[in-house]
Design a protein around this nucleic acid. Structure first.
Length: 354
DNA sequence: TCTGGGGTCCTAGGACCC
DNA sequence: TCTGGGGTCCTAGGACCC
């Protein structure tokens, strides 16, 4: 049985950020390593990635660093070094793209450490093995690969292959593997949505897959309702595309180690953030069309506001002035934990791809 | 637990227009 | 006078992902 047909592979680097740090400093190999924030577990911040050794202590992504330090007091804590990971990621994606000419593979990058590969083949498992070898040889990084008929199946399969493995889920096996699992095991279903589904009596993937569509629409909206049911059935045939991503906007935000009480300081920080984001969009070559401001009051209450600019601009005075003017919409008697400035860019000519 | 920083897309209400 | 039906844009917030 070796018919040639289209497959989706999902490549996911194992403990990517921690693995890159171990490559930089091999003496960290085998130690519990926790990367997050500024690398100081007494400061505000969360875990980006924990090495497998650190995970044995119960440390995981998204966990506050203070809690991680309590669970794994002897772990090595390191600051996030985004440029280093970007560079490592580009190396990995280059290796994946090298399967374009030889195997007709199309690569769609998802983030630092993930990519879909669309390919016609009669032996996706063999190809996955070659990909793992090539990535390891050229980057010294391990990856896991999920294979499926759809992106949803491939992405889901990867979790069963970790670490360093390959796992396949097809339309034939999807419900066997996922049917009895809770709905929030699906990619795209989180805590809030699974709670809403539970109110409808839907607890498992199989129940969501066979649910009536009307209650889903009523509770979750005209687009999302049917979409959740679709992913519970293993997703659709949406293609893997190598079309370069075009960002809608960029933002910069900062959580202050000490809450700000003085709103003159708040305004000054907004100007700093505005200048940083403006740099980002200048680098991208598309002017700002809209400015957004995000404030998190102490202890942890977030609000956003935004306004279209009179015309698209690269002018720092206009951008920073508009961002500071948005502060008028907030309560100056409260202290501020986080500030963020976001710039949305004019769409490219002809609109966004895809 | 005491909660980062970078994003995307969807929803829903009101404004506004024909 | 107690009263339409859409369509689109703007905005704030929600939810999720890596």
């Amino acid at each position: 049985m070796s018919d040639r047909r289209s497959w989706v592979l999902h490549v996911d680097l194992d403990q990517f950020v921690a693995a890159v740090e171990v490559l930089r400093d091999p003496s960290l190999a085998g130690l519990p390593v926790v990367v997050g924030g500024r690398g100081d577990p007494t400061q505000r911040g969360v875990v980006s990635t924990a090495s497998y050794e650190a995970r044995l202590f119960g440390v995981g992504s998204g966990m506050p660093l203070r809690i991680a330090a309590r669970k794994a007091p002897d772990a090595v804590f390191l600051p996030v070094d985004a440029p280093l990971y970007t560079q490592a990621s580009e190396g990995v994606m280059g290796v994946l793209r090298s399967f374009g000419p030889t195997d007709g593979a199309v690569v769609e990058v998802l983030g630092w450490d993930e990519a879909f590969i669309g390919v016609m083949t009669d032996d996706p498992v063999e190809l996955a093995g070659r990909i793992q070898s090539a990535v390891l040889t050229h980057t010294r990084l391990h990856c896991s690969i999920g294979i499926g008929d759809t992106k949803v199946m491939a992405k889901t399969a990867t979790g069963f292959g970790k670490p360093q493995g390959v796992f396949t889920i097809t339309g034939e096996t999807w419900l066997e593997v996922m049917g009895a699992r809770p709905a929030d095991a699906l990619w795209g279903v989180g805590r809030k949505t699974s709670a809403k589904l539970a109110e409808l009596g839907i607890l498992t993937v199989a129940q969501l897959a066979t649910a009536e569509v009307e209650p889903l629409v009523a509770r979750l909206g005209p687009t999302m309702g049917p979409w959740y049911r679709r992913i519970a059935r293993g997703g659709d045939g949406s293609p893997v595309t190598a079309t370069p991503w075009v960002a809608r906007g960029h933002g910069r935000e900062t959580t202050f180690q000490e809450n700000l009480r003085d709103w003159a300081v708040v305004a000054a920080e907004v100007r700093v953030l505005a200048a940083r984001v403006l740099n980002d969009i200048v680098a991208e070559g598309r002017p700002a069309a809209r400015v957004g401001l995000k404030i998190r009051y102490a202890p942890f209450e977030s609000h956003t506001t935004s306004r279209a600019l009179p015309e698209p601009t690269y002018d720092l005075g206009v951008v920073a002035g508009s961002a500071v003017a948005l502060l008028d919409r907030f309560d100056h008697t409260r202290s501020v934990r986080l500030l963020g400035v976001r710039l949305e860019m004019s769409p490219p000519e002809g609109g966004y791809p895809r």
